[in-house]
Simulated assay, not measured.
Amino acid sequence: MGKRPPLPGLRLDKRHFNALDLSRLLAACAVLFWHYQHFFVPPVEFHFNVNRPKVSPFYHELWWLFDYGHVAVQYFWAVSGFVFAHVYLADEGARGRFWLARVARLWPLHLLTLGLVAVLQATYSGMNGTEFIYHHQDMKHFVLSLGLAHYWGWQADQSFNGPSWSLSTEIVAYAVFWLLLPGLRRSPTVLALTAAVMALALFFRKAPDGPVFTCIGYFFGGAAVYGAALRGGLRTGVLTVLAAGLTVSAVWMGRSLHWEDGATLAGTFAALFGVLAIDTADRSDRLAAARHLGDASYGVYLWHFPIQLGLVLLIDSVLGSRGIARQPAFLLFFVGASVLAGFASHRWFERPAQRLVLKLAGRRRAAGAVAA
């Protein structure tokens, strides 16, 4: 039986968003700069403030990455909402395949890096009497991490492969998207925007489990942008004006009001609109070379902390001092190694693992059909 044609009016004619793909890789790299300060955290059992301007190479040129690279996580969430709307709204059979596709895509690499970090953290703890950066390395947090449920409100704090906390919150956003999918097909912009506003309102009002609500808000904000695009409301000129206006708003909220959350929200969607403006202007597909660069972003994001922890163990054992991390060449090495790991992981582990999971699931369904 052939694949069903897409549902009418629910998918943009532009199949690939090349600039958006490239932006995912750049966002993953931004997180690396924020986490670079980990190299300068000594073996302590409490939060340690790093003087980033003093120790970070290229700080004066790239201060905005070292100080604000963490907000790339919110951008990831917004992009995910846009991409999910693009992929699933027009797919009539999406709800039946949704969770299998998510498991096949996310869990293999998550489980691999989780196990690796557990081993590396045990080694670090054995050498120093405490854990590196993320101190909750117990059975409770390990079990929660297995199911990507380790940032749903039951946790004491980030644990094991700490950056995966954002994936944990995104699983909840996926669940809400799956539940709302029939309604989103009828009214994608209104329903997605309503979900985004409600979730962000709970976050801004300091509701419990704020990270989960933040993720849902940004995710459905991205889905609402896609809904508006379906109605023809997001042409290049409109996107450019929106990007510029939100950029000014973000700077004003950050510098004048000192409202970091509001500045992050405005800046995130300014970046999304700006990237989409580039994509809509690229009618001849001149950015096609960037099409698959975003595939490495998941690997870069999950591999960079185990790489960092491995480097710290090596430096502490061989050199005894982490002063080498102040060298520009070391920063370039860390970022380059993480990016290469992302590409290698996608090609030689993530894609084969994804195919294997889907193949095993297909065999199980076939066996069940025969038994029935």
Rank of each mutant, 00 (worst) to 15 (best):
L89M: 07
W154Q: 11
A156T: 09
A195C: 15
D282M: 11
V172I: 15
D316E: 15
F84Q: 03
R355Y: 07
V41W: 03
Q354N: 08
V251Y: 09
P208V: 14
A173G: 09
A288Q: 05
F76W: 08
R326L: 07
N128G: 05
A244F: 12
L287I: 03
S317L: 14
V241K: 11
F132L: 13
A19R: 01
K3R: 14
P43A: 04
L360G: 05
Q74F: 11
D138P: 00
F132C: 09
H141N: 09
P108A: 02
S168L: 10
L12F: 12
D209K: 02
L22D: 06
G222N: 05
F219P: 04
R322F: 09
L265M: 11
A281I: 11
A90C: 08
A288F: 06
L332I: 15
L62G: 00
R355K: 14
Y218N: 06
A28I: 10
R291H: 10
L314M: 13
V312K: 01
L242E: 09
W77E: 06
L109F: 14
L65K: 00
A195Y: 03
G233N: 13
T194L: 14
G2S: 14
L200Y: 04
P208Y: 05
H292A: 10
K359F: 10
A325I: 12
R286L: 14
G368V: 09
Y59S: 04
Y298S: 03
W99E: 13
V41E: 08
L191Y: 01
V31M: 03
R95N: 10
L65S: 01
Y59M: 09
H70K: 14
G162V: 13
R283W: 07
D13Q: 09
Q155A: 05
W34H: 13
T268Y: 04
F142R: 09
H292D: 08
G299V: 12
F343L: 13
L10A: 04
A175R: 02
T194D: 03
R4M: 14
L148F: 04
L20K: 01
L20I: 13
H136M: 08
S56L: 09
I278Y: 03
R186L: 14
L89W: 06
G129M: 13
A118S: 15
W77H: 14
V225R: 00
T189L: 15
L109C: 10
D282R: 02
A195M: 15
A192Q: 00
A224L: 04
G153C: 08
P6I: 11
A366I: 07
G267A: 05
R364N: 06
S297M: 04
Y88L: 12
A223Y: 03
A361H: 06
A344H: 01
F76R: 02
R355L: 13
R235H: 12
G115T: 08
L22H: 07
V87S: 02
G153W: 12
W259R: 04
T247E: 04
A369Y: 11
L230I: 11
F349R: 00
